[in-house]
Write a protein that binds this DNA or RNA. Sequence first.
DNA 1: CTTACCTA
DNA 2: TAGGTAAGG
Length: 330
Amino acid sequence: MKGKKIAIDAYNAIYQFLAAIRQTDGTPLMDSKGRPTSHLSGIFYRTINIVESGIIPVYVFDGKPPEEKSAELRRRIEIKEKAMEKYEQARKEGEIRSMKKYAQMSSRLTNAVAEESKELLQAMGIPVLQAPSEGEAEAAYLTHKGYTWASASQDYDSLLFGADRLVRNLTLSGKRKLPNKDVYVDISPQFIDFVTLAKKLELSREQLIDIGILVGTDYNPEGVKGIGAKTALKIIKKYGSIENAIGKDLDEKDIDFDYKHIRKLFLDPKVSEPNSTIEMENPNEDRIREILVNEHDFNEDRVANGIARLHKGMKISKNMERQTGLDKWF
DNA sequence: CTTACCTA
DNA sequence: TAGGTAAGG
């Protein structure tokens, strides 16, 4: 993927950092004022790795979520509140393992966390885009239109939103811990090309969306009762669409939501055209140091080392871009 | 999650 | 140099 621009679902990445970068008992990394810094650590070091590998990252931030997502957002808040209670209980009992698990589950991506992340990326000279609504939809649009070569997210929704290429596990660390166990599994980047996928499954994007709607999406979290991935695939393969299956393998009264409207949210999401060319810029070293070292107590030597790596990575990336640009002439 | 350090 | 582990803020 050297020399390619990749649209990164920023909230997806930040949320993972908030959940994962913690001590054994679940305490997040914090500065001397008690503010969380896990997101800054994750963004700083991973972005440097990505740039060093020759990829040009483009971070796409969420805007205002669509009204149709509010039930799902409420559901997530409830889960977090329950996790918070369980964390308290685990803390009283001194159950370190459980403390970490429930602390991770109660991670909240606050406004401050999102804004600080943007500021750090901008100081690093990394392109940042603000989506009007769903970041994942905007990233998919950028990829579909060729502004970026692929979208990076852990969520498969990217494909429903029309991303022609999806990269999962865009990270250099080759290990991931299995939930609740001391077992690590090897993780490597996973690349999904939509055309190849659609051919293999013999499904269109619309049909993939219908399968999603049957099993449940952010806009209808419950899905259709009794229908999981296997049945949904079977039904859409057999009838081609939800409407054709209603009255046959689908009972109309089980579909208590506007599936045509949800389909449209995926097919035609609110997105915007980028208002300038998407390029990396020279890092503002002083600003990076100001944010990480002065404001948030990062180790000066580590930050200096990171900045040096970032510089070198960008230089190679820029040279490569010039060369591939030249290649087009010959 | 990523880095830094230690051991074999 | 690979693999395991503690620390990072």
